[in-house]
């Protein structure tokens, strides 16, 4: 019973890592870039979701729109993914494009700086007070033979898996997906074949940021206390998941995200919770020692610019 309950908890927790890791993984494989601002884009997505849902709730309250809670949630996710993808595009345009020929280390610290700007910008804009993410759907609890599941948990896991699946299909089946795969294969040559590099970079950032926004809103549904620094720790850990999954692998990043969730949830079941992250990330380190390219990653080659 405890095992199954922990499994359910881990599925929810892993969903966030998986969604955020996808963004890291895409940018990394296509543009050879660690976008360290990604955790903060997740935070921005959560706040945009907060803004959109509050606005929709206000409209419903004044009677100009009659929307049920679940529809507001769906609209919030769609609008926020759309809006946050522009944040991603701007970040790429302002922060990374001018540095495309610069040493990779400069681009990496740009990410850190953009992250700090997003955090403190939010702090300046909205103040340091925590905001409570509105509860859009009522929590229903199901008891399935001793395992307790809420409707929110089911929704979070389903939405994350479907988004990951959709991205996978996009990359496998569309022309843009093919261009992305080609760029991941050889960053330098593909633009010579007529693939517009700038448009691909914008698209990559847009998709990654939209997924981060979805993660941010789902996070707000599950943990309805938002603060400007909420993206840092989860961003780092999702970055670990992206590396663990293997460079550029959608399946890998998703599975590694869930794996990280499982490790973090099951470790405290066996060991004292004080040592959770210590043991969890020692396990991750051990995995990387034996599989330095992650689960689904190709072996590094001379092509890699890092």
């Amino acid at each position: 019973m405890v095992f199954l309950q922990t499994l359910v908890n881990a599925l929810q927790w892993g969903s966030f890592y998986a969604l955020i890791a996808l963004g890291y993984s895409m940018v990394y494989s296509i543009l050879m870039l660690f976008n360290f601002a990604h955790g903060d884009i997740f935070m921005v997505g959560a706040y945009i979701g907060f803004g959109v849902s509050s606005a929709l709730l206000a409209l419903t309250a004044t009677g100009s729109l009659a929307l049920p809670g679940w529809l507001i949630l769906v609209l919030t996710i769609i609008f926020s993914m759309f809006l946050t993808s522009f944040v991603g595009i701007i970040v790429e345009r302002v922060g990374y494009r001018p540095l495309r020929e610069a040493p990779r280390a400069s681009a990496a610290i740009t990410g850190l700086m953009i992250g700090i700007i997003l955090e403190t910008g939010n702090l300046a804009l909205l103040g340091a007070e925590r905001v409570a993410f509105p509860s859009l759907i009522a929590t229903t609890t199901y008891h399935l033979g001793g395992v307790i599941v809420t409707n929110k948990k089911i929704m979070i896991v389903l939405v994350s898996i479907s988004l990951a699946f959709a991205l996978h299909q996009f990359i496998r089946r569309t022309r843009y997906g093919m261009a992305m795969r080609a760029m991941a294969f050889d960053y330098a040559v593909v633009p010579l074949m007529g693939v517009p590099l700038n448009r691909m970079a914008s698209l990559t950032f847009a998709i990654g940021s939209a997924l981060a926004a979805a993660a941010g809103i789902l996070f707000g549904v599950a943990y309805p206390v938002l603060d400007p620094y909420m993206g840092i720790l989860i961003g780092w850990k999702a970055f670990v998941a992206a590396i663990l999954g293997g460079r550029g692998s959608v399946v890998g990043a998703t599975l590694a995200g869930f794996l990280l969730g499982f490790i973090e949830m099951f470790v405290p079941m066996v060991f004292p919770s004080t040592f959770r992250d210590f043991i969890a990330y020692s396990i991750v380190l051990l995995i990387l020692v034996f599989r330095p390219h992650g689960f689904f990653g190709e072996a590094y080659s001379a092509r890699l610019r890092l």
């Binding site: 922990t6 908890n9 927790w13 909420m230 989860i234 973090e264 004292p272 919770s273």
Partner: peptide, 20 residues
């Protein structure tokens, strides 16, 4: 006697243990 660290948002592992 369960613990977590600052900035954690998910306590379900600890709470499941406490529940049991």
């Amino acid at each position: 006697y369960e613990s977590f660290t600052t900035k954690d948002a998910d306590f379900s592992a600890q709470l499941t243990k406490i529940n049991n």
